[in-house]
Amino acid sequence: MLRFTAERLVGMIVTMLLVSLMVFIIMELPPGDYADRYAFRKYSGTGVSVTASDIEAIRVELGLDKPMMLRYLDWIGGIVLRGDFGQAFAFETSVVKVIGDKVWLTLAILLSTLLVTYLVSIPIGILAAVRRGSAADYGLTVISYLGLALPNFLLALILLYFANKWFGADIGGLFSAEYADAPWSLGKAWDLVKHLWLPALVLAWSAVAYQIQTVRATMSDEINKLSVTAARARGVPETRLLLKYPARLAINPVVSTIGFDVNRIFSELPIVAVVLGLTELGELLLQAYLDLDMYVAGAILLLLTAVVVFMNFVSDILLAWLDPRIKLGA
């Protein structure tokens, strides 16, 4: 297990380096750079005519004139050695300051969504398989198809409407007004938890529906395995039997797709964030691209991919722990 973990860890680091290079190349792809944009912003409408050499001067000043490979090394070196993600040109400060809280809030949304997804779908999927063919099973199936069919921004709007109507509360955003700009405290953290459930529920919705079906299908298969009958024939009590034997294998496909879920959450987050008024990275990423503010965009892309890669690593380790046969193929 230790060796396996170490191998995957090394694999993860190599992947991250390759990803960072790709991210950097992608950042370079849009035509023009921030020097153009800066010159246009600063002088447009002022009547001053900007020459190519003016722009070039800005470029030198921002350090954008150096060859790409050199800038990449500077960038990745700063990140690895000093935790410095570079300059956020449009904000005239460091990237770390711009991204700051938003990273943690995005992570909080991600983790709570994953938590809701698995806490809801795994028990329900297992129950549906155990009570296969019962009214509860059919009911849950219908609900989960509804979940697959309903776009989540629509669900977000519906939930917002009813939450507002029934509780009279403004549950949009991640903080109540009194905490929005307050420094971090226990009260603020609790306030965050109280606001997180809604986006978590909305984002988890379709994944829950999907994972219920996955767990139900695998669990149904596993329940009929001879090993389960054999354990029953040894006198293992039913609940313990179901949890120890088939359930452990039934969550395998869920664990192995954690990475996909993370990916999907990141792609759905911006739309939901707009509807629910959340603070997260997606909107900033889009803005940074429009501004050609490449280090901000790069940092966000890199962080998001780092999360995906890390969650895949977690999924690999969990899978190896769940099913000892996995290590054979390592």
């Binding site: 001879l226 090993s227 009958t229 054999a230 040894r234 006198g235 769940l322 099913d323 000892p324 046969r325």
Partner: peptide, 17 residues
């Protein structure tokens, strides 16, 4: 405890995990 049972396929009657 009182009645033990063994099956045709030993691989399938053990849980692999």
């Amino acid at each position: 405890g009182e009645i033990g049972m063994i099956f045709q396929e030993p691989m399938a009657s053990f849980s692999p995990v």
